[in-house]
């Protein structure tokens, strides 16, 4: 899932790195307000946990298996800012220990998983929770929807970065976008189910752990910024579905990419296949995006309902009591 070095051009890596650096710097600044002197042990332990939790393989009936990514989970426990920092440091440690994820591409990975995942995911999560009125159902549905949207948004942003990294003649943007977003709509369902289950377990056992940052951090809850962030994530997700239908978007991107390329003097791969005319497969991409969108949304909401119902582990009374308070 990580972007490795070599996927994106140096200039795009630097640009995403600058954005991530700003976001993480701001998160560091805000983190202390919410967690105080508990910052280091809590954030560090959350990081270790995500690190270890990613080692649990989830079978999907194929030779490959999925795992937790954890951006939304970290935000659900620690709040957006400390969650962002925790995921960022997980990514740093994964590079430094596994050489997984690349050094130049670290900025892009942080942007996708920590900034979009934790900060954007948190915004979506709290919005959904507010709409559903709290309680177990709100917490689970919020985390499920946020986890799915975060994966989708990350894939859409990755496609844009990829587009800006290479010359337009090398590939058809619409096609790669379709494939990536369709795939990630499915991957996102997995992430959403895992996050939903984990959140519901925690909610039933230790409801106080969900959103520890909330009571002391009043500024996070300022609705304007939250709606802005939620709007951003939703817009990205909508863009993901709408992009194949809107024919102007690739053109607009082309001009941006041209400007980028002049600045970065990126090469066009003059390869074996560059001169071939592209065979348009017009039908399948619109269809598959629609199917992915509708199917994915349905699956996510079904998962939210099922997870909310299928968790009679033990002591549901504690959960209802806590919800009642």
């Amino acid at each position: 899932m990580h972007i490795q070095d070599g996927y994106l051009s140096t200039s795009v890596c630097l640009a995403t790195g600058a954005v991530s650096l700003g976001a993480v710097g701001y998160s560091l600044h805000r983190m202390k307000d919410s967690l105080g002197e508990r910052t280091v042990p809590l954030t560090g332990m959350m990081g270790s946990l995500i690190f270890a939790g990613q080692m649990v393989n989830f079978p999907i009936g194929l030779p490959v298996s999925g795992h937790l990514m954890g951006g939304v989970l970290a935000a659900a426990i620690l709040g957006p800012w400390a969650g962002c920092v925790a995921v960022t440091l997980v990514l740093v440690a994964q590079w430094a220990l596994f050489s997984d994820g690349g050094l130049l591409a670290l900025g892009a990975n942080v942007l996708h998983m920590a900034v979009l995942g934790s900060i954007g995911g948190y915004a979506v999560m709290t919005t959904v929770r507010k709409l559903l009125g709290g309680g177990l159902r709100g917490a689970v549905a919020g985390s499920v929807v946020a986890a799915w949207l975060a994966v989708l948004a990350a894939s859409a942003v990755f496609c844009l970065e990829f587009r800006l990294s290479y010359a337009a003649s090398d590939f058809d943007f619409g096609n790669i976008f379709t494939l990536m977003v369709t795939l990630h709509a499915l991957i996102g369902v997995g992430e959403a189910i895992i996050t939903g289950f984990v959140v519901s377990v925690i909610y039933q056992q230790r409801p106080d752990l969900i959103d520890m940052a909330q009571p002391t951090d009043s500024r996070v809850a300022s609705s304007a910024s939250r709606f802005a962030a939620a709007g951003l994530v939703c817009a990205l997700a909508v863009a993901a579905f709408a992009a194949p239908f809107a024919s102007e978007l690739p053109d607009g991107l082309d001009s941006v990419a041209e400007r980028f390329r002049i600045a970065a003097s990126n090469e066009s791969t003059s390869g074996l296949f560059a001169n071939y005319d592209q065979i348009p497969i017009a039908g399948w991409q619109k269809l598959s995006v629609s199917v992915a969108g509708i199917g994915g949304s349905l699956a996510v909401f079904a998962a939210a309902v099922l997870i909310g119902r299928a968790m009679p582990m033990n002591s549901p009374t504690i959960a209802t009591e806590a919800a009642g308070e």
């Binding site: 070095d5 070599g6 690349g102 090398d170 590939f171 058809d172 096609n175 791969t269």
Partner: peptide, 30 residues
């Protein structure tokens, strides 16, 4: 996924380029 999304007729050279650069960077990180 690059050549796959292009109907298997384009994107192979970009794919090889990405894989080569990826492996090189991976070995350096290692």
């Amino acid at each position: 996924s690059l050549p796959l999304s292009q109907g298997l007729d384009r994107g192979w050279d970009l794919m090889l380029q990405i894989m080569f650069r990826g492996c090189l960077a991976f070995l350096v990180s290692l």
